[in-house]
């Protein structure tokens, strides 16, 4: 049990520290790397909770796709982040104050409150034991039945995201040569080659 606790606190601490570093690091590449670290530790927390599916998804999707994409963007766009941060110190006192106030209040509130264990009974779908049904299957059970509405809605959100990305970025520039494979395959010899009989000594 103690190992359980130690692991939890380790993961949690690393998440908090790396989360802070994401915004504190001077080098944006470092920021993204800290983000990846945070994701990994988050996945660790999920494992601790017995949610191995979510842990794997987090690693695969967020670390494997999203964060790497971030990394590419950061490296490809030549943005001077230090310049963008010029005002940072200027606003730091106010920002820190606001943050501190909220933090203190939250700590007071959440610290005061005893977590109501009886609230767990409201949870409609307790996680089934791993020996009975795997996490993935259990998620699927609910996702396609009780949560079908949320599932579909999420799908629609992704659809909109896709449409938006295309609308805002896809450009058909005139004058750009594109490879059209069907055309290439369908070409005949007659279309591609013209045989000209050149008389010697005259040229074309």
């Amino acid at each position: 049990m103690i190992i359980h606790a130690i692991t939890f606190y380790t993961f949690a601490t690393v998440i908090l520290v790396s989360g802070f570093m994401v915004i504190a690091a001077r080098n944006p590449v470092h920021s993204v790397l800290f983000l990846i670290l945070a994701f990994f530790n988050g996945a660790g927390l999920f494992v601790l909770l017995g949610a191995e599916f979510l842990a794997m998804i987090l690693v695969i999707v967020y670390v494997g796709a999203v964060a790497v994409l971030f990394l590419f963007v950061v490296m490809m766009l030549d943005i001077d982040f230090t310049q963008m941060r010029e005002g940072f110190l200027h606003y730091l006192p106010v920002g820190a104050l606001v943050g501190l106030v909220v933090l203190v209040e939250l700590v007071l509130v959440v610290g005061q409150a005893s977590v109501d264990l009886s609230a767990v009974v409201h949870a409609a779908h307790p996680t089934p034991d791993l020996s009975v049904r795997s996490n993935t299957a259990a998620l699927g059970d609910f996702l396609y039945t009780d949560f079908v509405y949320f599932f579909q809605a999420a799908g629609l959100i992704l659809l909109v995201a896709m449409i938006g990305a295309i609308v805002l970025t896809l450009r058909h520039r005139p004058g750009v040569r594109r490879q059209v494979i069907a055309d290439q395959v369908g070409r005949k010899r007659e279309e591609g080659v013209e045989i000209v009989s050149v008389k010697p000594g005259q040229g074309l």
Partner: peptide, 23 residues
């Protein structure tokens, strides 16, 4: 709360795109 959030996000995301539509 979840359907609230879903609705808000679906709506907002569409509107973000529409606001920038004249790219």
């Amino acid at each position: 709360l979840i359907s609230l959030y879903m609705g808000v996000e679906l709506q907002s995301l569409s509107l973000y795109v529409l606001a920038a539509f004249n790219r």
